[in-house]
């Protein structure tokens, strides 16, 4: 019982503390190229406690499993053939203290090797922030036995470096569907073309035989190699009959419009019957 209570307390504390004790970083995606080798993000400590912030670069990209769940994959070992920008990316400063309510820039610079082949290179800036411990003054007075839990928050951002002409495109490899309870699960398999990641939207329109859109789902996608994306359609209220699931993939993202590589929209549809 005691163990359960302790675990519960820890769970509550762990769950709540980060909500008000972390710094935030924006934007969450950064694009550099050989004409603009440096950029910055803003670190904002909205808390009343100083934060320690450190930055490291890791090669990683989003992948999906067979159910369409997307995670960031960080390879354990690299062959050297990956478009890995992490070794030649630098953050400045790479470790610093962010005072309460302070905001400052973290500058990123790319120092790519000479004769870098044309293409897009990726890295994940991982920003770790934790509440800082204060300067030891010798005047600190312990109030009996004290213990404090320090939470470490890791923010994983995206960074792309484009060297020379880059392009992107996407192919829908397949669409599969299966009923799951009151839902219809559609899995969209995509493969990127060109030499750069495909950052865009996947829009599903579920259309009945009269042409009216019964369901519409929009999801943001980032296809670095291949990706499977899952769409759940609530079947409640849909009459049995013939339907068409139409997928549209486009690059019209409004979160970073100037940096998204544009590609022609791709539309593919499948016919479905709801018994």
């Amino acid at each position: 019982m005691r163990g359960s209570i302790s675990f519960l307390t820890l769970f509550i504390v762990c769950g709540l503390c980060p909500l008000y004790s972390q710094a935030s970083f924006a934007p969450v995606a950064l694009y550099l190229d050989n004409a603009h080798r440096s950029g910055y993000i803003l670190a904002d400590n909205g808390t009343e406690k100083a934060q320690e912030v450190s930055i490291e670069f890791v090669f990683g990209y989003p992948v999906s499993d067979s159910t369409g769940k997307v995670t960031i994959f960080f390879p354990d070992s690299l062959t050297g053939a990956e478009p890995n920008a992490a070794p030649w990316l630098f953050a400045y400063p790479r470790k610093f203290r962010l005072e309460p309510y302070q905001r400052r820039k973290i500058r990123f610079i790319a120092r790519p090797p000479q004769n870098l082949p044309v293409g897009e290179y990726w890295a994940r800036p991982i920003i770790t922030s934790t509440e800082t411990r204060k300067l030891l003054t010798g005047g600190d007075q312990p109030r009996g036995i004290e213990a404090k839990v320090y939470f470490q928050i890791r923010s994983v951002l995206a960074l792309s470096y484009r060297n020379g002409p880059v392009s992107t495109g996407i192919i829908i490899q397949g669409i599969s569907a299966k009923a799951q309870g009151d839902s219809l699960v559609l899995l969209l398999d995509m493969e990127r073309t060109g030499n750069a990641a495909y950052i865009g939207n996947a829009i599903l329109r579920f259309v009945d035989s009269s042409g009216s859109v019964k369901r519409s789902i929009t999801k943001q996608i980032a296809v670095y190699y291949t990706l499977r994306k899952r769409f759940d359609i609530d079947l409640a209220g849909l009459t049995p009959g013939e339907y068409v699931a139409e997928f549209e993939l486009n690059t019209m993202r409004d979160d970073s419009p100037g940096n998204i590589l544009q590609a022609a929209p791709v539309i593919k549809s499948v016919a479905l019957t709801i018994p």
């Binding site: 320690e52 400063p93 610093f96 203290r97 934790t130 800082t132 411990r133």
Partner: peptide, 13 residues
Amino acid sequence: ENVTFSDGSYVLY
């Protein structure tokens, strides 16, 4: 000048 971080490290730029 700076103050060592929680892991005892410091960096001065």
